Lab assay of single mutants.
Amino acid sequence: HNLTITQGKLFFHYNPKLCLSEIHKMEEVSGTKGRQERNDIALKTNGDQASCENELLKFSYIRTSFDKILLRWEPYWPPDFRDLLGFMLFYKEAPYQNVTEFDGQDACGSNSWTVVDIDPPLRSNDPKSQNHPGWLMRGLKPWTQYAIFVKTLVTFSDERRTYGAKSDIIYVQTDATNPSVPLDPISVSNSSSQIILKWKPPSDPNGNITHYLVFWERQAEDSELFELDYCLKGLKLPSRTWSPPFESEDSQKHNQSEYEDSAGECCSCPKTDSQILKELEESSFRKTFEDYLHNVVFVPRKTSSGTGAEDPRPSRKRRSLGDVGNVTVAVPTVAAFPNTSSTSVPTSPEEHRPFEKVVNKESLVISGLRHFTGYRIELQACNQDTPEERCSVAAYVSARTMPEAKADDIVGPVTHEIFENNVVHLMWQEPKEPNGLIVLYEVSYRRYGDEELHLCVSRKHFALERGCRLRGLSPGNYSVRIRATSLAGNGSWTEPTYFYVTDYLDVPSNIA
């Protein structure tokens, strides 16, 4: 807008934040220059609390790290170098490059900038070799853009010569660093050979998330399962459950009422301010606690030095998902009996873990797994792929695949051998790939016309006998059925096997 004052003059007093240069501009645009008398524009009460600059400061050096910015700028000295009290560095987070010096300023003089007072450097006698002032900004957020400017702080001049310097606002972004852990990993099994893994992005990506790394490792069953005799009275049979499938998407929606109208769909109840505040506090606490764990609990591995020492970490090797089922080394339970199943799973520490690289999504279907087997899954978020990966501390989750139908069934015939004193040795093959492992066998036998009897055969007993022995049988026709019990439950009964026990007292003698 054009402003013209045809008559009258300007009068400025007691404006401590208004620089004289701005008042002189007002004289020019209003056409009143030359009308004012000496005392109409006070030299001592206008701009006496402001830094009124008329020179431009330029930054000469900028260096960044993930949490620091090192700045240096060209030296500046007023005509009387004693008038320079120091520099004021202003900075704040700036997602967009549209910041002005006066953003967030209120009537009390406060604003949204963080201000650092910096002492002037030592003055050199040689004007050509003056030290460049600077400042190291610490405690910054990774991968965050900051708006920065600097200006001088000078003393009051009796001659009211307006001098000083100020830089333009520059924008500097800190470097990326390792992201925080992925949030809320959930693993479920939808079949006997697959596990579905879902997660949420890290709360602090500290860069642009480029991919996720998912490692999985087959877990050995508890050692007590191999040692305890679950045929003993009072000892509860062990059981394991597989990871249940995901709930429906509708039930997972946030901010939804727990109660549904019987007449149909209901609208979600909005969260109160107290609920939102509580969630923010919980989120802040979780982030602080995660940072504490990362800094205190997890110790970084030592990389190899120039002395030739090897990095103890196993090298990563990509495998196809079809090879995942046989990740671990199978060892027989008892070496003397080769027909026992290889369900003991000690994992070799030198073995390469299978892994998958996930790009542009937060889910993965891990296939080719062994049925009813526990897996430990390790999830890392990465925001750099080359020249070397920059990934987060791992988040861990466990899951067990679903049982395989008929995996616990005894394959092959049940054979028998009759000894003296009416002892019958029953023999059968253990299931080759049971659900988890076989903890015991149930032997059901009966003599024709009598009630059915049951015998429990422990895992250890089966390994020693290759089956079991029935003792003290009365003469007669017998039928026997056997079924295995694994961590997933009972298998199917075998087809009945028949044998006849004679009275050993009636056996004919070869003595003449």
Rank of each mutant, 00 (worst) to 15 (best):
S342H: 14
N490R: 12
L379P: 04
S474I: 12
L455C: 14
E290M: 02
N422M: 08
G308E: 15
V334S: 10
L293Q: 01
S262N: 06
A407C: 01
L237P: 05
D503R: 13
N422E: 06
V359Y: 11
L487G: 08
E224S: 14
T343M: 10
P300H: 08
D273M: 12
L369M: 09
E465F: 10
G491W: 00
G207S: 08
R481L: 09
L293S: 02
M402W: 08
D408W: 01
I410N: 06
L505M: 03
L235H: 07
K236P: 10
N326L: 14
S458A: 09
Y445R: 03
G234R: 06
G322H: 13
L440M: 08
P354R: 11
Y230M: 04
A330K: 14
L505P: 09
L379Y: 03
E362L: 11
L232S: 13
E224L: 13
F372L: 12
S492H: 12
T343Y: 12
K432F: 08
L437R: 15
V359G: 10
V214A: 05
T485F: 11
R301A: 01
T497N: 07
F372M: 10
L440R: 10
V393M: 12
G308P: 15
H416E: 09
D291E: 03
L379N: 04
R459F: 05
E290C: 02
V414E: 03
D291W: 04
I418A: 08
P238L: 04
V480K: 04
S398L: 10
L277H: 07
E362M: 12
E249S: 06
S363M: 07
R390G: 14
V457A: 08
L464H: 08
D291A: 03
K287P: 06
F337E: 10
R318T: 10
D506C: 14
K432V: 12
G322A: 12
T210G: 08
F419R: 15
Q380A: 08
I410Q: 05
Y445H: 08
E258A: 09
V327K: 15
N208G: 04
D261H: 14
S486L: 03
P205A: 08
S479Q: 10
G374C: 08
G325I: 08
E258W: 04
T272K: 03
E224W: 15
V397M: 15
S251W: 05
D261P: 15
P403H: 04
H254K: 15
V424Q: 02
K317I: 12
V439L: 13
G234H: 10
G264A: 15
D503P: 13
C456Q: 03
D311C: 07
I209R: 15
E452S: 09
V507Q: 15
T241P: 14
I418R: 13
P403Q: 04
T307S: 12
V424M: 11
T415W: 03
W216A: 10
K236Q: 05
P332R: 14
A263S: 13
F337D: 08
D503F: 05
H371F: 11
V365L: 12
A405H: 13
K302M: 06
A407R: 09
V214M: 04
R316Q: 09
A484I: 11
S398C: 09
S283T: 14
A407W: 05
S348W: 08
P475G: 08
T347I: 14
S344H: 10
I209G: 15
G449V: 00
R370I: 13
G306E: 08
R353M: 13
R400F: 06
V480Y: 13
A395I: 05
G308V: 13
K406G: 13
E310P: 07
S363R: 08
R313Y: 12
N383G: 07
R447V: 07
A335H: 11
I438K: 02
E227W: 11
Y230S: 03
S239R: 15
